Amino acid sequence: MDRLSDSELTVKIKDAIIRVLDLDLDHERLTDDISLYSSVVRMDSLTLLQLLVTLEREFNVEIDDEDVMNANLDNVGSLIAMIRQAVTGGGVASESGRTA
């Protein structure tokens, strides 16, 4: 995968959130400060898992459970920051970088 700019990565993550959660809005209206648990996003533990699996596949990364627990995921921006860190190699190992 070619390196994406921050804005391109943000759009791709927001598009995945909208698609997986079947939200009726576009990525411009899904602002970083919207709570993941609001009536707009309606995130719960099962949809978070679905979303993380989708993002791992789309960006070819592996997101460790510990990273999710430490991320303090409370709004769209915090989720984007965690995924950005995984994609850019900021502490979350990519699948190709894992050793057996």
Rank of each mutant, 00 (worst) to 15 (best):
V40W: 13
M69I: 11
T99L: 13
S45H: 14
D44L: 13
I83H: 00
A81Y: 02
V68A: 07
R57M: 10
M1F: 14
L79T: 13
L23Y: 01
L9W: 13
D65Y: 06
R3G: 07
D74A: 14
A71F: 02
A86K: 00
G97R: 08
V92H: 02
G97W: 05
D2T: 10
E66I: 11
D6P: 15
L52N: 08
D6F: 03
I18Y: 07
D33F: 04
A100Y: 14
T31R: 04
L30T: 02
V40Q: 15
R42T: 12
R42S: 12
L48V: 07
D2M: 13
F59N: 05
L55D: 00
I18G: 03
S5V: 15
L52F: 12
Q85A: 15
A81Q: 11
M69G: 07
M82L: 14
T99N: 12
L79M: 06
S7P: 01
V53W: 04
V53D: 02
M43K: 10
L49S: 10
D15C: 02
S78M: 05
V87C: 11
K12P: 02
D33S: 09
K14L: 01
R29E: 12
D67M: 04
S94P: 04
S5H: 10
V53G: 01
V40E: 15
E58M: 06
S45N: 14
E58D: 15
A71Q: 05
L55K: 00
D74L: 09
L52H: 06
L51S: 06
L46H: 09
G89P: 02
G97Q: 15
S39E: 14
R98H: 14
S7D: 10
L73G: 01
L9H: 07
H27V: 00
V76R: 04
I83R: 00
Y37F: 15
N72V: 11
S96C: 05
I13L: 00
L30P: 06
G90V: 08
E8M: 08
D6Q: 05
L52P: 14
V20F: 08
S94M: 06
I17G: 05
D32V: 06
